[in-house]
Design a binder for these strands. Structure first.
Length: 147
DNA sequence: GCCAACGTTGGC
DNA sequence: GCCAACGTTGGC
C-alpha cells in the first residue's frame, strides 16, 4: 500500500495511539476491489512511501479490519467527499491497518526495479500508478530477504 | 517542476 | 460505444 510520507508516512502510523489507522481516501476501483474482496484479517502488507525523495518499501503493517465503507466519502467538508457515494450504497471502501514494524532500511524502488526475481511484481511495471497492489508469497519473502 | 502514463468524464 | 479532453499519480 502506497502513501506519501508528507501526508501520512510510516511514522505517522507508528505515532497513532493504537498504531492503527483506517486507510481512507482511495478513489480507484481496482484498489477498492482489493480492499473489499482480497484483504483478510491478519494479512501482512508492505508500507510504501511514494512521491518522495527515496520512494520504496519502509515497513510492514497488518490488516486488523476488513473492508468497510469509507465514511469520508459521505462528508461534504472532507477533501475525499464523493457525492456519488452514500451510506445506502457506498462506492468506496477502506480497511484498518496496524503498524507491525519499520524495516531496518528502506528497500527502494530503484533497487527493486532491475531484479529478475521481481519480474511480474506490479510495483515495477512501467507506468504503474495503483496505490494498492498484490504481492505474492514468493515476492514477499524475496523482498524481505533484501532487508 | 516536468511529463509520461493512466483513469475518468461526457459529448456525440 | 468511441474517444478527446481533462485531472491525477508519481518517478525523476
Amino acid at each position: 500500500m502506497k502513501s506519501e510520507p508528507d501526508t501520512f508516512g510510516i511514522d505517522d502510523l507508528y505515532n497513532k495511539p493504537t498504531q492503527t489507522e483506517h486507510w481512507d481516501g482511495v478513489r480507484n476501483y481496482q484498489a477498492r476491489n482489493m480492499m473489499r474482496d482480497d484483504m483478510k484479517l491478519g494479512d501482512q502488507v508492505f508500507f510504501y512511501h511514494s512521491n518522495c525523495a527515496d520512494p520504496g518499501i519502509v515497513g510492514i503493517m497488518e490488516i486488523v479490519k476488513e473492508g468497510y465503507p469509507d465514511f469520508l466519502a459521505f462528508d461534504p467538508e472532507d477533501k475525499h467527499f464523493d457525492p456519488k457515494s452514500d451510506p445506502e450504497n457506498p462506492r468506496w471502501m477502506m480497511v484498518d491497518v496496524k503498524y507491525v514494524r519499520t524495516l531496518v532500511r528502506t528497500i527502494s524502488l530503484k533497487e527493486l526495479r532491475p531484479l529478475e526475481e521481481l519480474e511480474g511484481l506490479e510495483l515495477v511495471k512501467r507506468g504503474n500508478r495503483l496505490s494498492i497492489m498484490p504481492v505474492s508469497k514468493d515476492q514477499w519473502d524475496f523482498i524481505l530477504s533484501l532487508e
